[in-house]
Structures are given as structure tokens and as C-alpha cells.
Deep mutational scan, measured.
Amino acid sequence: SDIKVHVGDITVELHNVSEEFARLVEEALRLGLNEEQAKEWAHKALH
């Protein structure tokens, strides 16, 4: 599904992702990663 993740003043739109993936992206953003890094990190975490 499509999910918007908000962290501080950052909003990341995720398309066709699981809630778990979105949660991992949100966690990575909170750790200070940028959007691209957060998506990559979440992807690796799920595989």
C-alpha cells in the first residue's frame, strides 16, 4: 500500500510497501539517515 512517513519536517511517500517496511524507514529517518539511505536500510533489514 501507499504510506506517508513523517519524521520531524521530513515527509517520505512510499508506494506499494508493507507496513513493516514503512516502519523501518521511519526508524532509519529517526536515526538520522536521509530518505535514500533509509529506504536502502529498510530493504536490507527485510532480506
Score class of each variant (00 low, 15 high):
21 F>I: 02
20 E>F: 15
27 E>C: 10
14 L>P: 05
9 D>F: 06
8 G>V: 04
25 V>C: 02
15 H>M: 09
15 H>R: 07
40 E>R: 11
22 A>P: 01
17 V>S: 09
17 V>L: 05
10 I>Q: 09
16 N>M: 06
2 D>F: 13
35 E>C: 06
47 H>T: 12
1 S>I: 15
14 L>F: 03
24 L>Y: 12
27 E>S: 12
21 F>Y: 15
27 E>V: 13
43 H>S: 10
37 Q>L: 09
2 D>I: 15
44 K>W: 15
3 I>W: 08
27 E>M: 15
38 A>F: 01
20 E>C: 08
10 I>G: 04
10 I>R: 07
32 G>W: 01
18 S>P: 06
40 E>D: 11
13 E>H: 11
19 E>A: 15
11 T>Q: 07
31 L>M: 14
47 H>Y: 08
11 T>A: 05
33 L>A: 04
36 E>R: 11
18 S>Y: 05
35 E>R: 08
17 V>G: 04
5 V>A: 04
26 E>A: 15
44 K>P: 00
21 F>N: 00
31 L>P: 00
16 N>F: 04
28 A>W: 02
20 E>L: 15
11 T>G: 03
35 E>W: 10
29 L>P: 00
38 A>P: 00
3 I>P: 04
36 E>M: 12
31 L>G: 07
17 V>Y: 06
46 L>R: 02
15 H>D: 06
27 E>F: 15
36 E>P: 06
26 E>W: 12
43 H>I: 11
17 V>M: 07
28 A>I: 01
29 L>V: 04
15 H>T: 10
1 S>K: 15
28 A>E: 00
36 E>V: 12
5 V>Y: 02
2 D>N: 14
5 V>L: 13
11 T>W: 10
41 W>S: 03
12 V>W: 01
22 A>M: 07
37 Q>N: 07
26 E>M: 15
8 G>A: 06
6 H>D: 08
24 L>F: 11
3 I>T: 08
6 H>N: 13
24 L>Q: 03
2 D>A: 14
38 A>G: 01
43 H>Y: 15
44 K>V: 12
45 A>L: 11
38 A>N: 00
5 V>W: 01
32 G>N: 03
26 E>V: 12
21 F>V: 02
16 N>W: 08
24 L>M: 09
44 K>S: 12
21 F>C: 02
25 V>G: 00
6 H>L: 07
40 E>W: 14
30 R>L: 13
28 A>Y: 10
13 E>T: 13
6 H>R: 11
11 T>R: 04
31 L>S: 11
10 I>S: 07
23 R>T: 07
5 V>N: 06
40 E>A: 13
9 D>E: 12
44 K>F: 11
25 V>N: 00
15 H>G: 09
12 V>E: 04
2 D>K: 10
36 E>K: 12
44 K>N: 13
41 W>F: 13
16 N>V: 05
24 L>C: 02
7 V>N: 05
28 A>G: 12
36 E>C: 08
5 V>C: 04
22 A>K: 08
26 E>D: 06
47 H>W: 05
24 L>A: 08
39 K>T: 05
15 H>C: 07
1 S>P: 10
18 S>A: 07
22 A>E: 03
25 V>A: 01
18 S>Q: 06
10 I>T: 10
45 A>I: 13
9 D>N: 14
47 H>V: 11
42 A>G: 01
38 A>W: 01
14 L>I: 06
12 V>Y: 01
3 I>D: 07
12 V>T: 06
22 A>F: 07
25 V>F: 11
40 E>Q: 13
20 E>D: 11
44 K>E: 09
35 E>Y: 10
34 N>Q: 05
38 A>V: 01
45 A>D: 02
4 K>M: 11
34 N>K: 07
23 R>I: 08
7 V>H: 11
44 K>C: 10
47 H>I: 11
3 I>F: 14
14 L>H: 06
22 A>H: 05
21 F>D: 00
20 E>R: 14
6 H>A: 14
39 K>F: 11
17 V>H: 08
38 A>C: 01
40 E>F: 12
13 E>C: 07
36 E>A: 05
23 R>F: 08
6 H>C: 08
46 L>K: 03
16 N>T: 05
16 N>E: 08
19 E>S: 13
31 L>C: 09
27 E>I: 15
6 H>V: 15
43 H>D: 06
43 H>R: 13
21 F>G: 00
3 I>A: 05
15 H>F: 06
22 A>L: 05
43 H>C: 12
32 G>Q: 01
38 A>M: 00
18 S>G: 08
16 N>L: 05
39 K>N: 03
5 V>K: 04
3 I>E: 06
17 V>I: 08
24 L>G: 02
22 A>Q: 05
26 E>C: 12
39 K>E: 03
6 H>W: 02
34 N>I: 02
35 E>T: 12
20 E>S: 11
34 N>C: 02
6 H>F: 02
29 L>H: 02
45 A>G: 06
23 R>D: 03
27 E>D: 10
9 D>I: 09
11 T>L: 11
1 S>F: 15
5 V>Q: 05
18 S>F: 07
46 L>S: 06
5 V>M: 05
7 V>Y: 14
2 D>P: 13
39 K>S: 03
16 N>G: 14
23 R>M: 10
34 N>G: 10
19 E>C: 11
16 N>H: 11
37 Q>Y: 04
2 D>R: 09
1 S>E: 12
40 E>V: 10
13 E>F: 03
14 L>N: 04
19 E>D: 11
46 L>Y: 12
37 Q>M: 10
27 E>K: 14
6 H>Q: 15
22 A>G: 07
18 S>H: 07
41 W>C: 02
14 L>Q: 04
12 V>L: 07
38 A>D: 00
25 V>D: 00
32 G>Y: 01
40 E>L: 15
30 R>W: 12
15 H>A: 08
45 A>M: 15
30 R>I: 10
15 H>S: 10
43 H>V: 10
21 F>K: 00
29 L>T: 02
26 E>L: 14
5 V>I: 13
19 E>Y: 13
21 F>L: 03
45 A>W: 14
47 H>P: 06
6 H>K: 10
28 A>L: 04
31 L>N: 10
10 I>V: 13
17 V>F: 05
3 I>Y: 13
12 V>F: 02
37 Q>H: 07
34 N>P: 09
47 H>A: 13
30 R>A: 09
40 E>N: 10
7 V>F: 14
8 G>D: 09
37 Q>P: 01
35 E>F: 14
3 I>R: 09
41 W>E: 03
38 A>R: 00
24 L>H: 06
16 N>C: 09
11 T>N: 04
32 G>K: 02
25 V>Y: 08
2 D>Y: 12
13 E>N: 14
34 N>V: 03
14 L>R: 04
